[in-house]
Every structure is written in structure tokens, then in C-alpha cells.
């Protein structure tokens, strides 16, 4: 059981936890948290699975780097929409 495999399995659980969270939670902020967990889970599986026999594979690591940046962009946009939505309710 290399560390790659452990974190890959942890990643699967995170992914499913996040997926369940997005589907079941109703509060927008919490769903954004859940989406981030889902993403992190997928990243863990991507790198963990590739490195399940030990060794270091730079390709999935580069992909995860790209993924993290994309995730933060999406989260920022989602938060902007939530704030705009919540703020706007108050206006009109």
C-alpha cells in the first residue's frame, strides 16, 4: 500500500463526498465548498493512481497544477454570482 494508493482511495472518498454534497446541500456557499472537495478528490486520484507503484510522474502533477488554478477561477466566479445574487435580493 504505497502512499500513492492511500491518497488515491482517499481521493475517491473525497470525490464522492463532494458529489453528494453538491447534490444534497441547498446553501450556495456550501455547494461551492463541496465542489472544491470534489475537485481535490479527483486531483488526488489523478496523481495517486499514477504513482501507485511509488515513483514520481510529473505529467499528472502538471495537470493538477492547471486544475487547481482552474478550480480557483471557477470558485471566484461562483462566489461573485452568489454575492451578486444575495446582495441584489436586498436591493429590489
Amino acid at each position: 500500500m504505497t502512499s500513492g494508493l492511500v491518497f488515491a482511495l482517499a481521493g475517491v472518498l473525497l470525490f464522492v463526498l463532494g458529489l453528494g454534497g453538491v447534490v444534497m446541500l441547498s446553501h450556495a456557499l456550501r455547494r461551492i465548498l463541496a465542489f472544491n472537495l470534489m475537485g481535490s478528490g479527483a486531483f488526488l486520484v489523478l496523481v495517486g493512481l499514477a504513482q501507485r507503484d511509488g515513483g514520481v510522474d510529473p505529467v499528472p502533477q502538471a495537470m493538477v497544477l492547471t486544475g487547481i488554478v482552474v478550480a480557483v477561477a471557477a470558485t471566484a466566479l461562483a462566489l461573485a454570482l452568489v454575492r451578486r445574487l444575495h446582495g441584489a435580493h436586498r436591493d429590489d
Binding site: A8, G11, F15, G18, L19, V22, V23, A28, R31, I32, F35, M38, G39, G41, A42, F43, V45, L46, L49, A50, R52, P60, G67, A74, L77, A78, L81, V82, L85
Partner: peptide
């Protein structure tokens, strides 16, 4: 917002698929 959340969840599932294939 609803479109974004559906889209991001879908991308997450797609990404997990890619992770498995790479694995």
C-alpha cells in the same frame, strides 16, 4: 449560478474519468 454549479459538477465527474483512464 445554477448553470455554473451543474457545469462544474459535470466537469468534476469528467475529470475523475480522465484520472481513471490515466491510471
Amino acid at each position: 449560478l445554477r448553470y455554473l454549479l451543474v457545469s462544474l459538477t459535470a466537469s468534476g465527474a469528467y475529470l475523475m474519468g480522465v484520472a481513471l483512464i490515466y491510471g
